[in-house]
Design a protein around this nucleic acid. Structure first.
Lengths: 124, 124
DNA sequence: CTGTATCCAGCCGGATACTG
DNA sequence: CAGTATCCGGCTGGATACAG
């Protein structure tokens, strides 16, 4: 697995273990993008953090391996794939929303559309 | 700042920004330890993930800079410091608890004491 | 355009030695 | 024991070229 530093080592701690899966900035930003309605390779590349293509490919691969996202062929544009969150991935919403809210509460008070969007998603 | 890759760059996205502060495995594990009642240098070293001492020092420093933890001299044992969460740090509890619960729900069903502890803390 | 691969500078972190 | 510092191998990720 991609983020496992020591071979086969996994802490007993469920928090530490979850960090091995999603404790990576780029992975969480891709997941954010998916919550924001992005679905394609170019969608992810267009995000303001400008992820490198090799990083994007690597993260998409590991997220799929972990069962957090899945991939399907687009019925209309046959040559491209679209990526979407599995139920496992969707359950990360409270974590992302809370992180955004935490930042706005303690660092920068001006609420940005994204945190509102994530919070709204979480409410319904 | 420690995790700022590009000089002075900070995304507009509050999630991305919060990841610059706490989107690091070691930082979150130290914060977990603090929620679990650990307070000292040796406490952190004794955790099962065996953080390296240079990493521990670096993380304690940046967490203090960010205002997530603070340090005080122990009144009884004058020669050591103890570390504790600020209100800003305490507000990270739902994030940690949710990550632990997420892992137990989707990867490993056996609940460990830590997730129960974090959840209990969150409830009261 | 979607997606992959390669190069390589720089950072991360494990090991270890050191100070008070 | 608390806390710091240095060495250095390996990984991360930016740039870029490439394939379909």
């Amino acid at each position: 697995m991609l983020f496992m530093k020591k071979a086969d080592f996994r802490s007993i701690c469920p928090l530490s273990s979850s960090l091995d899966l999603v404790g990576d900035k780029w992975s969480l930003l891709i997941i954010r993008d998916l919550f924001m309605g992005k679905t394609t390779y170019s969608d992810f590349l267009s995000s303001p953090e400008s992820i490198a293509t090799n990083v994007l490919v690597a993260r998409l691969k590991s997220l799929k391996e972990y069962g957090i996202i899945d991939v399907r062929k687009d019925e209309k544009r046959k040559n491209i794939k679209y990526y979407f969150l599995t139920d496992m991935g969707k359950d990360l919403l409270p974590i992302l929303a809370n992180m955004a809210l935490w930042y706005e509460k303690h660092v920068h008070a001006e609420p940005e559309p994204i945190s509102k969007h994530l919070t709204d998603l979480m409410m319904k």
